[in-house]
Amino acid sequence: MKEWDSMKVASSKFKLIGTLLFLALPCLSFAAWNMDFQPGNTLLAHDIRELHVIVMVICVIIFVGVFAFMFYAIFKHRKSVGHQAANFHENTTVEIIWTVIPFFILAGLAWPATETLLAMRDTSTPDMTIKATGYQWKWGYEYLDEGIQFYSTLATPQEQINGTEKKTENYLLEVDNPVVVPVGKKVRVLTTANDVLHAWYVPALAVKQDAVPGFIRDTWFKAEETGVFRGQCAELCGKLHGFMPIVVHVVTQEDYDIWVSEQKNKVASRHIGGKDELVAGAN
């Protein structure tokens, strides 16, 4: 009688868990289970991903190694299996080994990291230069060689944000005026801001650069393929920090030239992010 009861309890537990798991299944199919960087579109993005893989491999190996010991001890050296405690508490040799070896592992890691970093920070000889100015809460762009200027603001309708309308694919990642650049060209981006800190962040281009009011900072990218690449402001800048995306259209040189001539026809009325604005903002 008793046995039967507990079996019933157990089986109902199984049923419950089973049902839950079954219900959870559809999640899997809907989900964009992205567990990695966004696919990169620059050489640097690939380098960074590789670097990340190297660090992860080192970490996982050490992690598994260390905790293999720990779990071995947990299972074999437990009191309940009658293990008697040893009394050692020092061993200079192993202590030196486990101080020195990690040091060399890290030195090995530092090498590729340094190489990538130096490449990343080399903004010399760009093919073109764009100045990106962060505002609360939009971006202003200025193509320094072409004299093109425009603002770029979130294009997602408020109704989608409030939930009164269905959210569309590029929810929060769409703007009225995207940045347009030619493929395969080294684009140098100068960042600055007009009010508070912002950061110009486009994951697929492996670019994140803080925009500091009053200072010009620079970064660069060279897109490998055409396409639309989306990012967001990545430095807390107040109320609408989550709502000032960055969209970069990478196009062929021909399309770019067409775009440029179109833009030049629109008269740029305002100098973006200059001294006057800053001083006005300062007082």
């Binding site: 100045k131 100068l190 600055t192 009053g214 200072f215 010009i216 620079d218 992010g273 200059g274 001294k275 800053l278 001083v279 300062a282």
Partner: peptide
Amino acid sequence: EADTQALLWPDFQNTWPISGPG
């Protein structure tokens, strides 16, 4: 210096003591 001066503070010369470019 460099771009910061050229693009943001065109006439600024730094000599201590100074208040600031703006």
